[in-house]
Design a protein around this nucleic acid. Structure first.
Length: 858
RNA sequence: GGGGGUUUAGCUCAGCUGGGAGAGCAUCUGCCUUACAAGCAGGAGGUCAUAGGUUCGAGCCCUAUAACCCCCACCA
């Protein structure tokens, strides 16, 4: 092995080797248990960012461990067509080319979209490979490929025939300039200074008025009611009466609705169902008429009568003036509020009523609520169970149509001649009723989530009844983001239940986000993102992978800093060098089975620590606590294995070469295996250099505990002694290049074998053993432990003045300890109510401290 | 507006069903000890956000307050 860790030399070739050997492909193997993860598909147009590096690596870590544990581990990769986002990007490009989708026409536009998909397909996937992801690439799926189209078609027809798809009205964000509806995500809210116009409406048959406050006086022409809060005492007596709509002179009712806030404005809201989403909802509840007065072009239409032909802005001006003239304008207040703007052309959004397709949710939601309530599907973080149930229980019908040109088609055909509607799994050639060939397909496209909802089943072959579905489904865990719990996770759950009769996954892990070093969300617009590829080039993939997990609770947000990657690279360098050391020691040594060799105290100690670590890491993995598992592995490797065991083993290796070499190789192998899911490349590189190894670490067996109860106690005492001597040395300012003298009195024979450890690690010349304390040199520091007393003569150390001070400090410490214990033990409440084990432990401590104090003060 | 989260050392974060405050980094000190200076050893550093409460005992449980953050819905 090279002297320095240089990841760029081997990462690519190792990955290609894995690919060539087909290690990632999961087979249907009845002798194995399946373990399945379906990757949340990134947008096809995306580039690798820190969020992927975090979220996808979680899955890779889980799947790699399961594979090593002997499961048939399948991780299905894929990408999403993200129709809206992609169409938006392509339209921008067309704009640069001086054309537009309208100019191209639908057919040509579709070609461009398909080409766009092809052009992009590579990038993110290649980057995922660079990350080392062990997905089954042969099963790579795309939400617009043939299988997915079939699934979408089948499901749509199924829902339609059940009567769960219907056409309804809905308010959409309409951009009058783009002449298109746009998604919520494309609406930019900006605070705009404006006014609140207070307008009075006369109550029918009286000379009383009711005063409303509005930011949009021009929509008064479309008002079909005014609303007040049912609990508002000011207006209780007028609910149910009519008011005269100013300018229009039409009678409209006063309705009571919870939506109205009593404290805002006058507590009275004019209701314009055609031009405001909330008003539309109010309208539905009270059966109000819908009057659309603004057209698709943002111009007042014929229903606006006198104002027809004016733009929204012109109409507002005229109407305000006319209201003033009519004496209906009470006052104008300054008011600034959030107004939606089109992200593209910055035009003010006009909420418009339009016809859309909906899926009825009531029946679909029921079983989806049940499986989460009864724990069949588990949110690993309980708080998200609430988010989910809250949404599911108040679910509204799902609007699935989008006014865009790309994405999945809506398979609804209408006969131009007789009006017959045809919804079948294959495109109809003629009208079944009148045999006309003039059929038109619905032009709207499906919401992207419609196909995403089928992802866990479509990737496994649905709508066909495949062997994959039988074997790998339901999948085991879904790792995804907080903000799409309802948009996506929820829809996958009811889809799985409805279409294949089984939950899509058992566990749901909602990962946190990776923020920048200052705790800000990484974003393109802020430009505070870090490019993972840059980190990989600089420090290697393994360093990047490990650094985003070390010490991180994956469900909560974490911070990324390059410094962390650098420190992780240092850790990996440590692994590299420790491995080099082991390989140097075991060169030309036959490595025997760990259970058949002679083991020293140090060997037994590290093996017992390894056992503990295996247990603990497994527990953390089962809870998906992989960040904590990473830290634990790092601590074990660096602190226990390198800083203690390797150093201790240097004392043993000459006399017990066989046993110590076996232990070095055994422990290194096991820890490399446990580290492999996190840092796959370097562990493979080292593993293949080991004297005993399988074909690849990634298909080797996950560590099992040794079935032996090793006693690590002796070495624990030794570590305590060494620590104490190192303290004394530091206090006495003895530099590390100077060895000191010591004498020792040992009360337990086994410790005699461990004196070499103490002398080496505490930098002592030699340690003569004495029979009694009288033989100790007097001008010295005496360290007293349960089974061993060390005497350090001061003449081998430079300074002697600090010693008195040290003893005084120690006496003071012991006295305060004794006082604490005595106080606790004389507390009647404690003795009566605390658990017995705790009381006994406290008594033991008290005795121990008293003995030590007596020793120091005699 | 609704829901959720966070607050522990200078920084980033652990801290299990309540039982003596932890790690890493940074900082300071000493070491190039034949695996590693991308390293080794040691030290200093904390009213556990604030105020109450429950308890023999609270970082942990309860109540209120403050600051910051996230998600959803967006206010005539």
């Amino acid at each position: 092995m090279e002297k320095t860790y240089n990841p760029s030399e081997f990462e690519t070739s190792i990955y290609n080797n894995w690919l060539g050997k087909k290690y990632f492909s999961a087979k249907i193997d009845k002798s194995k248990k399946p373990f399945t993860i379906i990757m949340p598909p990134p947008n096809i147009t995306s580039k690798l960012h820190m969020g992927h590096a975090f979220q996808q690596t979680i899955q890779d870590i889980i799947i790699r461990r399961k594979r090593m544990q002997g499961y048939s581990a399948l991780w299905v990769p894929g990408t999403d067509h993200a129709a809206l986002a992609t169409e938006y990007m392509l339209c921008k490009q067309l704009e640069n080319e001086g054309t537009s989708k309208e100019e191209l026409g639908r057919a040509e536009f579709k070609k461009r979209i398909d080409q766009w998909y092809k052009d992009y397909k590579g990038t993110i996937i290649e980057q995922f490979k660079r990350m080392g992801y062990s997905c089954d690439w042969d099963r790579l799926s795309f939400t617009m490929d043939e299988g997915n189209c079939n699934a979408v078609r089948k499901v749509f027809v199924h829902l339609y025939k059940k009567g769960w798809i219907y056409k309804g009205k809905r308010i959409v964000n309409w951009c009058p300039k783009c002449r298109s509806s746009i998604s919520d995500a494309e609406v930019e809210f900006k605070d705009v200074p404006s006014h609140l116009w207070h307008i009075r409406y006369q109550i029918e048959g009286t000379d009383k008025y009711i005063e409303v406050a509005t930011t949009r006086p021009e929509t008064i022409l479309g008002d079909t009611a005014v609303a007040v809060n049912p609990n508002d005492d000011r207006y209780k007596d007028v609910v149910g009466k009519n008011v005269v709509l100013p300018l229009v002179n039409k009678l409209i009712p006063i309705v009571a609705d919870e939506y109205v806030e009593m404290d805002f404005g006058t507590g009275v809201v004019k209701i314009t169902p055609a031009h405001d989403p909330n008003d539309f909802e109010v309208g539905l509840r009270h059966n109000l008429e819908v009057v659309k007065v603004i057209g698709d072009d943002g111009v007042m239409n014929e229903l606006a009568e006198d104002y027809a032909g004016l733009t929204r802005e012109e109409a507002r001006e005229r109407i305000v003036a006319d209201l003033k003239t009519a004496g209906n304008l009470v006052k104008i207040e300054d008011y600034s509020h959030n107004v939606g703007h089109c992200e593209r052309c910055k035009t003010v959004i006009e909420p418009l009523i339009s016809s859309q397709w909906f899926v009825k949710m009531e029946e679909l939601a029921k079983p989806a609520i049940e499986v989460v309530e009864n724990g069949k599907v588990r949110f690993m973080d309980e708080q998200y169970k609430k988010t989910y149930l809250n949404w599911m229980k108040n679910i509204k019908d799902w609007c699935i149509s989008r006014q865009i040109w790309s994405g999945h088609d809506i398979p609804i055909f209408t006969c131009d001649d007789c009006g017959e509607v045809i919804v079948e799994e294959t495109d109809p050639a003629e009208c079944p009723k009148c045999h006309s060939h003039n059929l038109s397909q619905e032009l709207d496209k499906l919401d992207t989530w419609f196909s995403s909802a089928l992802w866990p089943i479509s990737t496994l072959g649905y709508p066909n009844d495949t062997e994959e579905l039988k074997y790998f489904y339901p999948t085991n865990v879904m790792v995804t983001a907080r903000e799409i719990i309802n948009l996506w996770v929820a829809r996958m759950i009811f889809s799985g239940l409805e279409y294949v009769g089984e939950i899509p996954f058992r566990d749901i892990v909602i990962n946190g986000i990776v923020k920048d070093a200052n705790g800000k969300k990484m974003s393109k617009t802020l430009g505070n993102g870090t490019d993972p590829i840059e980190m990989i080039d600089k420090y290697g993939v393994d360093a990047l992978r490990f650094s985003v997990f070390d010490g991180v609770a994956i469900q909560s947000d974490s911070r990324f800093s390059e410094k962390k990657v650098e420190l992780t690279r240092n850790f990996i360098n440590k692994i590299w060098n420790a491995s080099r050391y082991v390989l140097m020691q075991v060169e030309n040594v036959e490595i025997k089975d760990i259970q058949s060799v002679n083991l020293t105290y140090a060997d037994k100690w590290i093996l017992s620590e390894l056992n503990k670590t295996i247990d603990s890491v497994n527990n953390k993995f089962e809870k998906y606590d992989i960040g904590m598992a990473a830290s634990e592995l790092k601590d074990f490797f660096w602190d226990k294995f390198c800083d203690w065991y390797i150093e201790l083993s240097k004392c043993d290796i000459a006399e017990n070469k066989e046993g110590t070499c076996a232990t070095l190789v055994y422990v290194l192998t096991q820890i490399l295996k446990m580290l492999h899911p996190f840092i796959p490349f370097v562990t493979e590189k080292i593993y293949l250099e080991l004297p005993v190894h399988d074909e690849s670490i990634m298909i080797s067996a996950w560590p099992e505990k040794l079935d032996i109860n090793f006693d690590g106690e002796v070495v624990e005492s030794v570590r305590e002694v060494i620590g104490a001597i190192r303290n004394i040395r530091a206090e006495k300012k003895v530099p590390d290049n100077k060895k000191i003298n010591a004498q020792v009195l040992v009360k337990k024979d086994c410790l005699l074998d461990c004196l070499k450890y103490i002398s080496k690690l505490a930098l002592i010349n030699e340690i003569p053993v004495v029979d009694n304390e009288e033989s100790f040199e007097s001008n010295s520091v005496k360290l007293t432990f349960n089974d061993i007393i060390i005497n350090l003569p001061l003449d081998s150390m430079v300074d002697s003045g600090a010693e008195k001070e040290r003893i005084e400090k120690e006496i003071a410490r012991l006295k305060s300890e004794i006082e604490r214990s005595e106080r606790l033990l004389s507390n009647a409440g404690f003795v009566a109510k605390a658990p017995e084990s705790l009381i006994n432990a406290e008594k033991e401590k008290l005795e121990k401290h008293k003995a030590l104090l007596a020793e120091l003060t005699k």
